[in-house]
């Protein structure tokens, strides 16, 4: 099975959007990184015992659910309808929104629904940086 070298570890970290070098003390950085990679390799190495198990013809089990529930109808919800539905009829599937415009669900300018406004406000309030009603990120293109 694969030995985890520094190159592999750094490639995996990049996929995971993590920086392994961050926080390591300057001077001992390389030694600390080596230790991290070794520890990671040891953990991955332990997982190799799975190879001992004969799984010929065994189907993977990804979820222990006994009876799969039917998926919800593929139709947009409004936040308010979803809330009311979940609170009102327990166990019943939510009512699909008839107007069909998904953007309408989170329109804080809709004067009819204070629940919608409330939702839009707390979603934006939790964002580290916003501009008007939008999340902001550095320029991409």
């Amino acid at each position: 099975m694969p030995a985890i070298d520094e190159k592999t570890a750094l490639a995996i970290a990049k996929l995971a959007r993590l920086d392994l070098r961050e926080g390591l003390a300057p001077g001992t950085e390389e030694a600390e990184l080596k230790k991290l990679v070794e520890e990671f390799g040891k953990i991955v190495g332990y997982m190799d015992i799975l190879g001992e198990v004969d799984t010929e013809g065994v189907e993977p089990l990804y979820s222990p659910m006994v009876e799969p529930r039917p998926p919800r109808e593929d139709a947009p919800f409004t936040a308010a309808a979803k809330d009311a539905d979940a609170r009102g009829a327990k166990g019943a599937p939510g009512k699909p929104e008839s107007s069909g415009d998904p953007d309408a669900s989170f329109d804080p300018d809709d004067p009819d629904s204070s629940a919608k406004e409330d939702r839009a406000r707390w979603i934006l309030d939790d964002a580290p940086m916003t501009f008007g009603r939008y999340f902001t990120v550095p320029k991409v293109v």
């Binding site: 985890i4 995996i12 993590l18 799984t55 189907e59």
Partner: peptide
């Protein structure tokens, strides 16, 4: 971070069958 790294590794191309899928089979057993 340790667990994110391990999971990213187990799901990454080239290792998926040997780790993630294999573990899911052992799970059934």
């Amino acid at each position: 971070k340790r667990r994110i790294l391990l999971g990213t590794f187990a799901l990454s191309s080239g290792y998926y069958d040997a780790y993630f899928k294999k573990a899911a089979k052992v799970r059934r057993l």
